[in-house]
Amino acid sequence: MADQVQVSEEDILLAKRIISAAERHDIPALKVLLKEGSANVMDPTATTATSPLHAAILSCGEAKDGKEAGDDAYQTVDLLLSNGAIWNDLNKEDETPGCVALRLGQRKIYENIVEAGVRAELLFAKMQALGLGDDDEEEEEEGEEVLEEQPAVKKQKVDEETAQAVTQAVEEEILDDVSKDNKAYLRSQLRYKPGILLDESDNAVMMDWETEIMQRHAETLIPKKGLKVMNVGHGMGIVDTAIQTHEPAEHHIIEGHPQVHQRLREQGWYDKPNVIIHEGRWQDILPKLVEQGVVLDAIYYDTFAEDYAALKEFFSEYVVALLAPDGKFGWYNGLGADRQVCYDVYTKVSEIDLHEAGFDTEWEDIKVPAGLHGSKQWEGTRRPYWTIDLYKLPVNTFVK
Rank of each mutant, 00 (worst) to 15 (best):
A21D: 06
I285L: 09
K64I: 15
E351H: 12
L311T: 09
Y110C: 01
S201L: 08
E111I: 00
G61Q: 06
R383Y: 14
Q340M: 07
G374W: 01
D43I: 09
E149L: 13
K183M: 12
E148R: 13
E160P: 00
D71I: 09
N333C: 11
D71E: 11
H278S: 06
L286Y: 07
P273N: 05
N333W: 02
E23I: 00
D297P: 06
A310L: 10
H355E: 07
D344E: 08
S350E: 03
E200M: 10
E172S: 12
H54L: 09
M236I: 03
N333D: 09
D136Q: 03
I86Y: 02
D284E: 10
K31V: 09
Q164E: 12
D11E: 15
E93H: 15
G84T: 00
D389K: 14
W331G: 02
T162K: 15
D302M: 04
V349A: 04
G358S: 01
G70R: 07
E121R: 10
D94L: 14
E23Y: 08
G293K: 01
I57V: 07
I238T: 10
Y343K: 05
K157L: 13
A298E: 04
T96A: 09
Y318W: 14
Q4Y: 14
S82W: 02
V170T: 10
K400D: 12
I285T: 12
M1R: 13
E356H: 15
N88K: 10
G143I: 04
M1G: 14
E356T: 11
V320W: 05
E36F: 08
K376Y: 00
P28T: 05
A22T: 05
Q292V: 00
P52N: 05
G371Y: 04
D89I: 15
H252Y: 13
T167G: 05
Y391S: 00
E10K: 12
H261Y: 14
E351Q: 13
Q267H: 12
A15W: 10
A49Y: 11
I366G: 04
E62G: 03
L33E: 03
K288M: 10
C99T: 11
K154V: 13
V100M: 05
P194K: 05
P223H: 01
K92Q: 10
T381S: 15
E161A: 15
G61S: 09
D307Q: 08
D326K: 15
L197M: 09
L221I: 04
L132I: 00
G226K: 08
F398H: 02
V118I: 14
C342M: 10
A56V: 04
V290L: 01
K154H: 13
I366Q: 13
D353K: 15
Q4T: 10
K272T: 07
G84I: 00
E317I: 06
L132P: 02
G133Q: 11
I57Y: 08
A39S: 11
A309R: 14
L289W: 03
L322T: 05
F359H: 00
I86C: 06
A204V: 13
P97D: 02
T245I: 04
G336F: 12
R17E: 08
G327P: 06
T361Y: 00
G84A: 03
G336I: 07
V319E: 02
D338T: 12
E144M: 12
V341Q: 07
L175A: 13
K228C: 08
W331Q: 00
A321F: 03
K155F: 04
D297A: 08
Q156V: 15
G117R: 01
